[in-house]
Amino acid sequence: MPEPALELDGLEVRYGTVAAVRDVALRVDKGEIVGLIGPNGAGKSTTLHAIMGVVPASAGEIRLHGRSLRKRSSESIAQAGVALVPEGRRIFYEFTVEENLRLGLAARRGSGKGDPLERAYELFPMLREFRRRHAGHLSGGQQQQLAIGRALVAEPDVLLLDEPSLGLAPLAVDSVFEALRGIRERGVTILLVEQRALHTVALADRTHVLVGGELRLTLSPADARDPDKIVAAYLA
């Protein structure tokens, strides 16, 4: 019996009178990657923001290991074991690479042995090499690695990523998806929001298509060989 790490149940988020997300239900089991794709404005980022407590859920339930996350502050959700790699990376340009990583430790529970930044360095050796550099001097792909590394040093149970491939060159996109495979192997549960549908469907255990704030369809990795089905889901 798979163990659910993150569950959304009847989630609704409203901006004034407009419902940006309606009756969204999904679950991410321990060790899984679940994709969430859909056109711009479909409510993908809003869903992640609701999970992190950035925007309030007007209805429904968000559970981590069976415990509700609703009405909790962003920092307490981060400390409960959910880490977000935000859209646009949101790294601190004026800080060094190492300082950016150390910020990620704010949500770390307990203190393990050894260098806590090792988790990030092991996955992205570039970060160790450039640890004294200002983050603003890194390339876009390197900044994305830093943003993911910063989330990982908190040793989260669930990692949320908001369009990590946005604005990256094709090679950098491939390395982001490669890194996600590596992260899954380390036992981290992942909810991935993306625009790159084919990449996502091929990588994830399941991919949900969100259109107009509602879940339309669920795709399996086998559907990656059938781009027409994905296009049809977007247009439906």
Partner: peptide, 17 residues
């Protein structure tokens, strides 16, 4: 310093406001 630069991101990382 992080909170002074970008409070929302700092909180998302677990910095206690």
């Amino acid at each position: 310093r992080a909170a002074a630069g970008d409070f929302r991101t700092a909180r998302l990382l677990g910095v206690r406001a």
